[in-house]
Simulated assay, not measured.
Amino acid sequence: MTATATTSTEPLIVRRARESEYAAVGELTYRGFGHHLPAADQPDSERLTLLVDAEARADAGTLLVAEDVRTGKLVGTITVLLHGSPLARQAEPGEAEVRLLAVLPEARRQGLGRLLLEHSVQLAARNGARGVVLDTGVDNLGSQELYRQFGFIRRPDREKPRPAPKVQLVVYTLDLAG
């Protein structure tokens, strides 16, 4: 899957990650979640493995990246998983799940998260999904706003309490059948 879009400052392409890029995508994901910042909370070992192991995400689904075509730098990523994937935690039969949407801090506020989300939803539809599900931290209000603007609907009926110190999650779905 390859598609091109132009943001206000840079030409970008969204495509599948290449095997040779997996380490860079892992670092991008880690940085995109802000764990590299001074005094940032560090993920537990299970979460850290999920963030940096881009190869596992590519094996379990489709690992997409956004590339600045002028510099060749990867600036964003997202993973699309079908129901039954070992890394899907919310997808029910007929749904695709998007996980680990991450954009480098210096590339934010240009519509890149929305662009990655668009490509993920299109990929899910092409793969026969009738809906898309995702989750995010209850305090991640910026991402929640993006999902609502895109048309996702919060589904409290699908939210499950998680033991501390895990972050509580909110679940959103998008109906592709209608």
Rank of each mutant, 00 (worst) to 15 (best):
V121A: 02
V138A: 06
K166H: 14
V14N: 10
K160P: 00
Q149M: 03
A3C: 09
H35R: 08
E92H: 13
L117I: 01
D41S: 11
E95C: 07
A60E: 06
A66I: 04
L12P: 09
V121I: 06
R126A: 12
I13R: 15
R47N: 03
R162Q: 14
P93A: 12
G178C: 01
A56K: 09
V52D: 05
V170F: 15
G113A: 10
S8R: 14
F152P: 09
A164Y: 12
L146I: 15
Y30V: 02
Y22F: 15
P163F: 08
R31T: 09
Y30L: 12
V171N: 13
R31C: 03
N140R: 01
G32C: 06
R89C: 07
I153L: 10
L28N: 05
S45H: 08
R47C: 02
E10H: 13
G61P: 07
S20E: 13
T4G: 12
V98T: 09
P11V: 01
R16L: 07
R57A: 14
R155V: 00
G178K: 14
Y147V: 03
I13T: 13
P161I: 05
G72S: 10
L112M: 08
A56Y: 09
L48T: 04
G128V: 11
A96N: 06
F150Q: 05
E159H: 14
G113H: 10
G128L: 11
R109A: 15
T136N: 04
V170W: 15
K160H: 13
G72P: 12
A17Y: 03
V80H: 09
E67T: 04
A60M: 08
A177R: 14
G61T: 02
T79F: 00
T62C: 04
E46L: 06
G94E: 12
K166N: 05
